[in-house]
């Protein structure tokens, strides 16, 4: 499984791998919002947590359809399914590789970009922490969606429709953590719920993902 993780990371960094695609999208979104809404701090500061979380979510969505589709096209997915690795392990490894190349950079870049939106200083560390805790759920849910739609032509549109509703709890609690942090309230409750969602996704979804892959490979 370490070999698979290293291969996926290497593929993401090589030409055409799509590493940085989500990050660039996130960056552009955060710069476009002040241009669209107007650069007034009193206008931008209240919406900054929501905008940044929404941006991170959409950036995550961009690269989801590549998780399994490329492996299916070149036949590696069939070979991985016949390899001694459990398919659940393949699913978890793929999700981890997706998070390392998409979610983690977003969590690191988020606090820096929050300055563009005049986010209050006390909220900035909470944004980083909530993204760090919340984006794994986005990757694991997205991997499940990718397994459901693998092999479908133009499946990426269906993938977005399937996955976006499942992202709602993460988005709600993630943005709530930052909003409470900005207002000086304790963000402990939404943070705990966010971490709970992520842990639940990491623990349960690889099994669902593997089941979906088995059905789609038949």
């Amino acid at each position: 499984m370490i070999a698979l993780l290293l291969r996926d990371l290497r593929l993401a960094i090589r030409a055409g791998g799509g590493f940085g695609l989500g990050l660039a999208f996130f960056l552009i979104l955060a710069t476009l919002v002040p241009l669209a809404v107007g650069p007034q701090p009193d206008l931008l500061a209240p919406i900054a947590p929501g905008i940044l979380w929404l941006g991170a979510l959409l950036a995550c969505l961009l690269s989801l359809d590549r998780i399994f589709a490329l492996d299916l096209d070149d036949g590696s997915l069939d070979l991985l399914a016949t390899a001694p690795l459990p398919l659940e392990g393949v699913a978890a490894t793929k999700a981890l590789a997706h998070w390392l190349t998409t979610g983690l950079p977003l969590a690191i870049a988020g606090p820096a970009l929050s300055l563009l939106l005049f986010m209050p200083a006390p909220a900035v560390p909470w944004l980083g922490l909530s993204l760090l805790l919340g984006t794994p759920a986005l990757s694991w849910i997205g991997t499940f969606g990718a397994a459901l739609t693998v092999g479908l032509r133009r499946g990426s549109l269906l993938l977005s429709l399937l996955v976006l509703p499942l992202y709602i709890p993460t988005l709600v609690f993630g943005a709530e953590v930052v909003r409470r942090g900005a207002e000086g309230l304790s963000p402990a409750t939404p943070l705990a719920l966010l971490a709970g969602i992520t842990l639940g996704c990491i623990g349960l979804l690889p099994f669902a993902t593997a089941a979906a892959l088995r059905i789609n490979l038949k």
Binding site: L11, A15, G16, D74, G75, S76, L79, T82, P84
Partner: peptide, 18 residues
């Protein structure tokens, strides 16, 4: 008994960028 078998399909299963 899939565990005994190594399968080589029509598709090559190689990654072009590697």
């Amino acid at each position: 008994v899939p565990d005994l078998c190594a399968y080589a399909a029509h598709a090559d299963g190689l990654k072009g960028q590697l």
